[in-house]
Design a protein around this nucleic acid. Sequence first.
DNA 1: CGTTTTTGACCTGCGC
DNA 2: GCGCAGGTCAAAAACG
Length: 398
Amino acid sequence: MSMPSTFDGDDETQHWPAAGKRSIREVDFFSSERRGWPEDSASAPPKEIPAHEDHKLALLSVGPCEEGDKTIQPSDLHLSNTTMTNWSLKIKLDKLKDENRKLRIMLDCANQSYGALQTQLALLKQEEVLKLKNTASSIDDDPRKSLIAHSCKNIRPASLSDPETDRDSIPIDKHEVSVRRPRVSIRARTDAPMISDGCQWRKYGQKLAKGNPCPRAYYRCTMRAGCSVRKQVQRCPHDEAVLVTTYEGSHNHPLPAAAAALASTTSAAAAMLVSSSTTNPSSNLPPPLFTDHQQLGTSILASYSYSSACPTVTLDLSRFPSWNPPNTNCYSMMLPPPPVFNSSSISRDLHDGQFPGHSPSTSSMTEAVKAAIDTDPSLTSAALAMTISSVLKANPSA
DNA sequence: CGTTTTTGACCTGCGC
DNA sequence: GCGCAGGTCAAAAACG
C-alpha cells in the first residue's frame, strides 16, 4: 500500500509533531542553551542569524531574558545603531513568525478535533443502528421499523462463518466497513476524465455497466490507510458530457481546506436523507431536498434514489453553464457517518414534485443559489456548494 | 524499483 | 437453482 507524496491534509496533520518539537526546543532553550548565550553574545549578535536560532530571538523579544537574578537587556550588548535596527526588525519578524506558528498550531488542532469528532459520530451512529436493528427484529408490522430491519440485512460481516451469531462480537469499526451506506452522487458537465476533489484516489477496478458504452471506474481513497471512502466515476449514458461521480463512505482523516465546501454540502444532503426518514415516520418517502428553480433558467436538481441496497442523494450540477472546466475542479466529498435505514425499491425524482404534500415551489435553497449566481456569475462550484450547504443547514425543510 | 493502472477472474446479491 | 449484473480482488503490465 502506498501513500501519496503530496497531500495537503496529511501535511497539515504532520505539523503536529513538528510543532511539538519546536515547542520542546523552546523549553530546552530556557533550560540549557540559554545559559551560555549572554557570554557568547558579549560582542554584537551575528548579522545573519541562522534559522534554528529564531526561537531565541523570539523569546528574547517577548520580555527581558533572565540569567539567575540578573536581567539581560539588549542595551547591555554593545551594538551599533544599524545592527540594532536590523536586530529590532528581526525581532519583530520573529514575533510575527511565532504568532503565525501558533495560529497554525491552533488550526491544526481544530482540524484534528474535527476529524476525531467525525469518527466518534460515526461510531455512535453505528451503535444506534445496531440498537435499532435489535428493536426492529421483533416488530414486523411497522413499516418504518421493517425498513430498518431490512437495511440491516446489508450488514455483511465478511469472512465470518456465522454472521448472525458472530455479529455482536465484531468491533463497530468493522461494521462500518461492511455497512451499505448512503451515497452521494454528483453530476457535472465537464470534459475532464475525473473531477479533482482534493483527495487522493487509487483506481482499483473498471467495469462496463450494462446500457452504458462508457466504462465505470472504481476508486478508493488513499489519503490515509484504512479510509473507507470509495467513488465511482462514469459518463452519463444519455449525455456523455456529463460526468457522474458517486461517493460512498466516510473519510477517517481531515480533508484539505479546499475540499471542505462540497464536503459540507454532501454531508448536509445525506444528513437530510437520513433525518427525513426518522422525522417523518408516517411516510416511507423522504421529503425533497430542494427543487428545480425554473426562474433561474438553469436548475439545481436533488433527488433521492432508493436502489435495492443503497439510498442515494444525487446533486445535479450539470445544468450550470458556468460550471464547465476549470470550475468543476474543486469538488470534495466527505460523507457523514453512514446510518442505514432504508432499502426499499422505490426510486423517484423530486424535481417533478411527485411527492404528495411536498410542493415543488420555490425553495430557500434555490433563492439562495439564485442570489449567489446573480451576485457572481462566475461562481465556482465550491462557492455554490457553500451556498447550498448553508441553506441546507439553516433550513432543513428547504 | 516502487507505485499505479489495467484487466480478467472471482464473489455476492438479486430476479426469475 | 440458475443466470445476470455490479463490485472487488489480485496478478501482470505500464509508468516515472
